[in-house]
Amino acid sequence: MNFDFLFSNLPELTVTGLAFGAIYALIALGYTMVYGVLQLINFAHSEVFMYGTFAALWTVMALGGDGDVGTGRTIVILVAALFAAMAMSAAIALILEKFAYRPLLKRNAPRLIALISAIGASFVLAELMGLRDRVAGWFGLEDNLSEYVSGARINRSMPSILQRQDLFSIGNYRVTTLDLLVIGSAILMMVALDQFVRRSRLGRGIRATAQDPETAALMGVNATRAVQVTFLLGGIMAGAAAFLYMLKIGSTRYDAGFLLGVKAFTAAVLGGIGNLRGALLGGLVLGVVENWGSALFGSEWRDVVAFVLLVVILLFRPTGILGESLGKART
């Protein structure tokens, strides 16, 4: 174990770990909200995130963000890419709710059937993106869209549109604008979502449905709308995570959501599945511990450290760090 490397690079490992953890946390919100309302794990949520990464990539490409475009145009492109990613992920989440979940819920299908439906939808969405060149060819658009559909099963990189600038030092590490943008954006969006769920009429409907669907329906809460809004909000958060991921990592592919989805699910369970604040805490803790573990044991052990942490937490606190469900959240 390389303790010297860990302690000499502790500030950098911590800050970059928080940045990765913030992305995990935003994706984890989708898992934790759907579980809080439906008691189901939406394993297709990883593809909701993946589609958002491609929406951000294609928007930057379409707006010509591959050169020195100036500060004003850079801001316009970044804002457009953010909204495109959130819109794409939200749309995919709503499609999943309508076709993969709602018919089963109406028939009172066992949760295992819904889980299998989610896994199937996950593979379908991933393969559709991996075969987008052939899909475009079916409509005779392969030549017109070649820039967007070529290399359908390899990594696609986004132009580096945001210049990283050093802001201040923590130890021997220079914190950059990108670090603060990723961490700050995730925290602000988490706070906004938490306040929406706690204080808005729709948010109270979501919590009522999560706590007791039958009583909520008797009190006039539209359960179908509450579920739709839950998927919509989870998709929006995943889209924001996708945008930040593309800024931080800069590349994606048709199966990019798989590992990120598993990590985000781990973060949700770590913080307390069904707890919005737990998703944020779990994501940040996971990101930091991953980085520290990779410094101690080597980068090839990064994923092992993450899942060992999950096992240890569940052994001593099965409900996660916070453990309070969405339906029992206090106003």
Rank of each mutant, 00 (worst) to 15 (best):
A242Q: 08
W138F: 15
L233Q: 13
G220W: 13
V288R: 13
G278Y: 14
I75V: 15
A55M: 07
A192Q: 07
T53N: 06
L104P: 12
A208P: 10
W301M: 14
V135A: 11
D133L: 13
T209R: 12
A100P: 02
S294D: 09
F196C: 03
F265A: 04
V288I: 15
L145F: 14
A81N: 09
D179C: 12
I273N: 07
F196S: 05
I92V: 15
A87C: 10
L78F: 12
S169A: 13
G130P: 02
V135N: 03
A55L: 08
D303C: 03
G120T: 02
Y148H: 05
E300Y: 03
D179E: 13
R207T: 03
R102G: 01
L112R: 01
G235V: 06
I321V: 15
L141Q: 11
E12G: 12
S89E: 07
E147M: 12
R164Y: 04
V69T: 13
P213N: 02
G271E: 05
K106S: 09
Q211Y: 11
F258I: 10
I113Y: 03
G283T: 11
T266P: 09
A91M: 13
S122M: 15
P159V: 10
G283Y: 13
N172Y: 02
Y24Q: 14
D66Q: 01
G52C: 04
A44G: 15
S294P: 08
L276F: 04
F168K: 00
A306R: 10
T331M: 12
L128N: 04
A126G: 14
A85P: 07
E47N: 08
Y245D: 12
M88I: 04
A114G: 15
Q163M: 07
R73P: 02
P11W: 01
I273C: 08
V221N: 05
V227L: 03
L145I: 02
S146W: 11
R198A: 15
A217C: 00
V124M: 12
A91V: 13
L115A: 06
L94D: 10
I236L: 15
S89G: 09
F99R: 06
G203K: 10
Q195I: 12
V311N: 01
P318N: 07
E97G: 07
E290H: 03
G278H: 14
H45M: 05
M33A: 08
G272A: 04
R156G: 10
G282I: 06
S294C: 09
A90G: 13
N275I: 09
A85I: 13
E142I: 06
A118C: 09
G298L: 01
Q228V: 05
A28K: 09
L286R: 02
A306F: 10
G234A: 12
G203P: 09
D179S: 11
L57Q: 07
L315Q: 13
E147G: 14
P11Y: 01
L26G: 14
Q163W: 00
G327H: 04
A208N: 09
I273H: 06
E142M: 03
F316I: 15
N9P: 04
F83P: 01
R277H: 07
A226T: 11
W292R: 02
N42G: 08
L276A: 05
G17L: 11
A114C: 14
L281N: 02
R156W: 01
E142G: 09
Y35A: 04
A81Q: 11
Q165F: 03
G36N: 11
N291T: 00
G171S: 11
R132W: 00
W138N: 11
P11V: 07
F49E: 05
I27S: 08
F258G: 00
